[in-house]
Design a protein around this nucleic acid. Structure first.
Lengths: 338, 338
DNA sequence: CCTGGCACTCTGTGCGTTCGAGTGCCAGCA
DNA sequence: TGCTGGCACTCGAACGCACAGAGTGCCAGG
């Protein structure tokens, strides 16, 4: 087991390296941190830390830099989550309060997060899987053409065109609209299929085809829109990556363009707690030099989606985690209020 | 006036430089292009071209590279628009035909354009300014809470919550919905304010407040949503920028994050023809090392929005212009069909 | 007006040297 | 057993230098 002081040395190394972006040596460490021991002692500790795989030297006769394993230990045991200053909190609140609709909330969130952490921000739209139906509307656009509009309790609106197999009268339409709503409003998506299953039977034979079509489009929409959407921002912060950013940036940009990769990235985050994936812990190899800090957010107690940031493994973990957590909370509040 | 051969030399320089990304010298030029003259002659021509400002040397005793002015001349007089190969056309059509809704069309378009040109693609959503109203729907969510849904002929759907000053009966609601639609369906946005102006007067006194509120929200939506949205893709292609990409990429990424800048960029494109802005011709100075190729697209004869690509000034103009034009045409077709 | 020749001017590269930061190890001390 | 100071060693970064190569400008001649 590592002694207390050795952990302290590791912490100092991480902090210095994050700050200076240069390998840190034993002498510099003792000067900048009051460890109470001499450089020689620190050197011994460093040798041990290196044996254990927490730090590494880029080359002999250079200082040490933390490994992924070192950052992991740092995050797990040596660092807390740094709370934001109250001006920062106020800024967040002010910024998010100005949002007018869901798109705006998400858009503002991503910009805010990018600015606050000076890294790439990723925000997932509130998921529909746990959403409930607020309203289903049917409009007649032409004799045999309908539009279906689905409104969820998270404020999302989806619409679909429907070509009916047969003309559909206005009274039938009103009837279907009313019955549909009485059955599904307030219900969860997952329950809807069961609830509307027997609807066609209660209609005249001539209308059944259309009713079935409408229902199948509705169910399809529910499933399709369960697929998550997300939005990213702050990509210009990638230039902060460090001196080797030219080689790093390419795979990262590529990864960021793949929605699938990003969704998986956020998806890996466990339910409500904050998740930190460091370097090679990320499955996608384009992101092996990055860390991902993600957390769920939601209007109630349940997380409806995730948000987070992607940055170099050499990042300010306490600060980033603090910002991510704070933003998630405020967004949750905003969603709950609307 | 520049002689025919000098223009030919300029063309050769542009082509070689675009291909090799290295300053091109007189000897290499005569070897790779059959100009029918000796290197010495080419050198003289180059000196003239340099005096006129079409080419420049990074330093004495290096080859020449085209200036913005040189590219401008190249685009205007020396190069045509390279049509796509028929496999490429087929690929475009297949790819775009699979789209299910407007979001999907735009999303596919941006990916397609990025892939085809290997540059950053920007696609603006079809504008609402010239759009017409397909349908306005009013839903009652609570006694004094309505939802307004606006559907346009380009397939866009916008919704707004409305808090009414007083409860609004179902019959009044149906009445308003019917009258509203009879007046505005098929009309252009710009005409709507005039057409609904006197609507409140025809309602009972108690409902007038609500009707006015609804109308004001509708008009507001029309104005607000006239603001353009756009989407970008292919940012990882920025790494193709060349050896000096580390310094160039930062301001470009920053510019790409500003929707306003991008909108202006596309907006500068004149109505229907293709626009090429080269280097310093771009107002935004972060984009002084990039060229923008943009063109309008639309379902009919009128352009409803723009799309284009952003890349290094050192780009394959004929190929890029060909791809941009082709994609715009196909998207126009898709929109017209739906 | 074109061409070949020639002197000149750069940059990029390879090489050797030096400098300095940082290490590992060891002997001594508490 | 653990800390400390000292010392030799290593290796990369920086510098100077010479050299090759590509490219130019200019000039005299066809």
């Amino acid at each position: 087991m590592l002694s207390e002081r050795r952990l302290e040395v590791l912490r100092a190394i991480v902090q210095d390296y994050v700050g200076t972006e240069e390998p840190v040596g034993s002498k510099a460490l003792t000067e900048r941190h009051s460890l109470g021991v001499s450089p020689a002692t620190v050197r011994n500790d460093m040798a041990v830390l290196e044996d254990e795989g927490f730090i590494a030297q880029p080359h002999t006769s250079a200082g040490r830099i933390p490994t992924d394993k070192g950052y992991r230990l740092f995050v797990d045991r040596l660092a807390g989550v740094k709370p934001l200053s109250s001006p920062e909190r106020r800024a967040i609140q002010n910024f998010l309060d100005g949002a007018v609709d869901l798109d705006d909330v998400v858009g503002r969130t991503v910009r805010l997060l990018a600015q606050l952490t000076r890294q790439v921000a990723v925000v997932q739209y509130p998921s529909l899987t746990r959403s409930t139906v607020r309203h289903v509307e049917l409009l007649s656009l032409a004799p045999a053409r309908l539009m279906l509009v689905l409104i969820t309790d998270t404020g999302r609106v989806e619409q679909r065109m429907i070509d009916c197999p047969a003309p559909f009268g206005d009274t039938s339409l009103a009837d279907l609209r009313a019955r549909l709503n009485s059955r599904v409003v307030g219900r969860r998506f997952a329950d809807v299929p069961r609830l509307v299953q027997d609807l066609p039977e209660s209609f005249e034979t001539e209308d059944r085809g259309t009713v079935s079509t409408v229902l199948s489009v509705l169910l399809e929409t529910l499933v399709e829109e369960t697929e998550e959407r997300l939005i990213i921002g702050g990509t210009s912060n990638l230039t902060r990556f460090g001196h080797d950013f030219p080689v790093m940036i390419r795979p990262v940009l590529e990864a960021l363009e793949e929605q699938v990769v990003l969704l998986k990235l956020l998806g890996e985050a466990t339910d409500s707690g904050m998740t930190v994936r460091i370097g090679h812990e990320n499955a996608h190899e384009g992101l092996n030099a990055t860390s991902v800090v993600a957390v769920g957010y939601g209007s109630g107690d349940e997380a409806v989606a995730k948000l987070g940031v992607v940055g170099p493994t050499r990042m300010d973990y306490p600060g980033t985690m603090g910002a991510v957590r704070a933003v998630a909370r405020y967004v949750g509040q905003i969603l709950a209020d609307s």
